[in-house]
């Protein structure tokens, strides 16, 4: 019965342990030696993964802050200052990405892609938001990747990884944002643009909403063109994108309809109540 079973376990346990101890005294078996090397290999891999996750988090946080900063752009009178400040912030983010690139020297990027993907997406969002504010157009993947080519010269290198790669691949390495990361980042950008639209109406800016709805429509058309060619996440974002577009289009509609009848100084009130409503619906983007 179960009593006998339990007793056996008690009897056998120290016995099994003793045998293990004996094995430790003897030269370790081939199996144990190889498992020791597996332990090393797995630990190295997990450590690298953790370091990358941490970097990715930092990149996400800094990028988010940049986006918040850029949202102040429309309301503030000193727009240039905010833009240059955002540039400084993005440079800091890029330094983090450089560290990521260093971690990935000689590795298969896709092996660790899951660790860094969220950070990269957020970076794409921040950088494309800034680019839009500056140029009113969409930044391309190529342009983003151009900024992610790093050279060893601009900072003294202390990492030992670079020293052995110096001979083969001197001084430059890069990180490439994948098309999918780019697409997901751009999809998030549209959410920011929607917020920008609503808040600019709140500030009495009548032109920006129309410009934005035009731009968002172009992006939406682009996404529908891709459709389900892309991975599942992309098609999932398409739904939110549609909602953002609808909000912006509705804002433009209201502007057109009400704009003709409400005096300009009162428009701000109409939209500031609307903004609150939308923010509540949205939750945290």
């Amino acid at each position: 019965g179960s009593g006998g079973f339990r007793k056996r376990k008690h009897d056998n346990f120290p016995h099994g342990q003793r045998r293990e101890e004996k094995e430790n005294l003897n030269p370790p078996s081939a199996l144990m030696t190889s498992f020791k090397s597996f332990q090393l290999e797995l630990d190295t891999r997990h450590d690298k993964y953790e370091r990358l996750v941490k970097l990715s988090r930092d990149i996400t946080i800094e990028s988010k802050r940049t986006i918040f900063l850029l949202h102040r752009f429309t309301s503030a009178p000193n727009g240039e200052e905010i833009l240059s400040e955002s540039e400084v912030k993005l440079d800091a983010v890029r330094r983090k990405i450089k560290q990521v690139a260093q971690e990935l020297i000689g590795e298969d990027m896709y092996q660790f892609h899951r660790a860094i993907s969220p950070g990269l997406q957020e970076y794409v969002e921040a950088v494309s938001f800034q680019y839009f504010i500056k140029t009113r157009s969409l930044i391309s993947v190529e342009e983003i990747n151009k900024q992610l080519i790093f050279t060893a010269e601009d900072r003294e290198e202390t990492t030992n990884m670079t020293s052995n790669s110096h001979d083969k691949q001197p001084h430059t390495w890069s990180l490439k944002v994948t098309p999918v990361d780019y697409l997901l980042g751009v999809a998030d950008l549209t959410g920011e643009l929607m917020r920008l639209c609503i808040s600019s109406v709140g500030n009495g800016d009548i032109d920006t909403p129309f410009e934005l709805s035009q731009f968002l429509r172009q992006i939406y058309d682009g996404f529908t063109f891709i459709g389900n060619t892309g991975p599942y996440e992309v098609s999932k974002k398409l739904y939110t994108l549609k909602q953002s577009l609808a909000k912006v289009e509705n804002a433009c509609y209201t502007l057109k309809v009400r704009g003709s009848e409400i005096p300009k100084h009162m428009l701000a009130d109409v939209f500031s109540t609307k903004t609150e409503l939308i923010d509540q619906e949205e939750g945290l983007p």
Partner: peptide, 19 residues
């Protein structure tokens, strides 16, 4: 590069990936 051109290029890349 216009937005639609960019998306066309991306679609091409994703299509190849799918193949």
């Amino acid at each position: 590069m216009s937005v639609s051109e960019m998306f066309a290029a991306l679609q091409g890349a994703l299509g190849q990936d799918q193949d």
